[in-house]
Measured scan of single mutants.
Amino acid sequence: TTKIQIRLADGSRLIQRFNSTHRILDVRNFIVQSRPEFAALDFILVTSFPNKELTDESLTLLEADILNTVLLQQ
């Protein structure tokens, strides 16, 4: 498993454990389930350093190389 910290656009944080085989789409779905107010918003996930937009949501967390990292919601 891996721990992902997500810094949300409103300044708050979410921390969740995922399997390395989960997909970026699963992280997006977790955000929307945790904070339904973001469901209607068009947002992207970005790595904190170096900044990289995670546009291919079909990638696993392992394939995207974002295990144990911080993601930013923009």
Results as ranks from 00 to 15, higher is better:
D56I: 15
S12V: 04
L72E: 03
K52E: 07
P36S: 02
I15C: 12
L45I: 08
L14C: 02
L62Q: 15
Q74T: 00
S34D: 00
Q33W: 02
V46P: 00
Q16N: 08
R23S: 05
P36H: 00
F49Q: 14
R23V: 02
T69P: 08
S48V: 12
L14G: 01
N29Y: 09
F18K: 06
A39K: 13
T69N: 08
L25R: 15
K3V: 13
S20V: 15
R17C: 11
D26Y: 04
L45K: 11
E63F: 03
V70I: 13
S58K: 05
V27A: 07
N68Q: 05
L25D: 05
R28N: 04
F30G: 07
P50W: 06
E63T: 02
F49D: 13
L59Y: 06
R23Q: 03
D65K: 08
L25K: 15
V27M: 02
S12Q: 05
N51R: 15
I24R: 05
Q5C: 15
P36W: 01
Q33M: 08
R28V: 08
L41W: 10
S34H: 07
L72Q: 00
N68H: 10
L59R: 02
P50Y: 05
T47M: 11
A64S: 08
N29Q: 10
I15F: 11
D56V: 03
I31P: 04
L62G: 15
N29H: 03
L61P: 02
S34I: 11
S34L: 09
L59W: 11
R28K: 14
T69R: 07
A9Q: 11
F38A: 03
E63R: 05
A9P: 11
L41T: 14
D26V: 01
A64K: 07
I15P: 05
I44Y: 12
L71C: 10
A40G: 13
K52C: 12
V46F: 02
R23T: 11
S12W: 00
P36Q: 03
I15L: 02
P50R: 08
L61W: 01
L62C: 13
F49W: 13
Q5I: 14
N29M: 05
L54G: 05
T69C: 10
A64Q: 11
A39T: 05
R7Y: 10
R13L: 13
P50F: 03
E63C: 08
F30H: 08
F30L: 02
N51V: 14
R13F: 13
Q74V: 15
I6N: 04
S20R: 09
F38S: 03
D56H: 03
L62M: 12
E37A: 01
F30Y: 09
L59I: 13
D56E: 01
H22D: 15
I66Q: 06
R28P: 00
D65T: 00
L14E: 02
L41S: 11
L67G: 15
L62E: 15
S58D: 07
N29S: 13
R17V: 13
L67Q: 13
L59A: 10
L72D: 11
D10E: 07
L45E: 05
L14P: 02
L67A: 11
I44E: 07
L62F: 12
E57T: 10
A39P: 03
I44Q: 04
F18Y: 11
S12D: 02
L72H: 12
V27K: 07
L61A: 08
S20M: 12
L41K: 12
L61V: 03
R13H: 13
S20D: 08
L71Y: 14
I44F: 03
I44W: 00
Q33A: 11
T21V: 02
N51L: 13
P36E: 05
L72M: 09
L8I: 01
L59M: 14
I44G: 00
L25P: 03
S20K: 14
T2R: 08
V70Y: 00
S34P: 11
S58G: 08
T1S: 10
V27P: 09
T2Q: 11
Q73I: 14
D10V: 03
E57F: 00
Q74K: 12
L25S: 15
K3M: 12
I24T: 02
L72G: 01
F30S: 01
L25I: 13
T60D: 01
F18C: 03
E63M: 03
Q33P: 00
D65P: 07
I66K: 11
L25A: 15
T21P: 02
Q33H: 06
S34T: 15
Q73V: 15
I44P: 01
R13Y: 13
F18H: 00
F18R: 09
L45G: 01
Q74W: 09
L59C: 07
L8A: 04
I24F: 04
P36C: 07
S48Q: 13
S20N: 11
I44S: 10
Q73S: 04
T69G: 15
F49N: 15
T47K: 12
I4N: 09
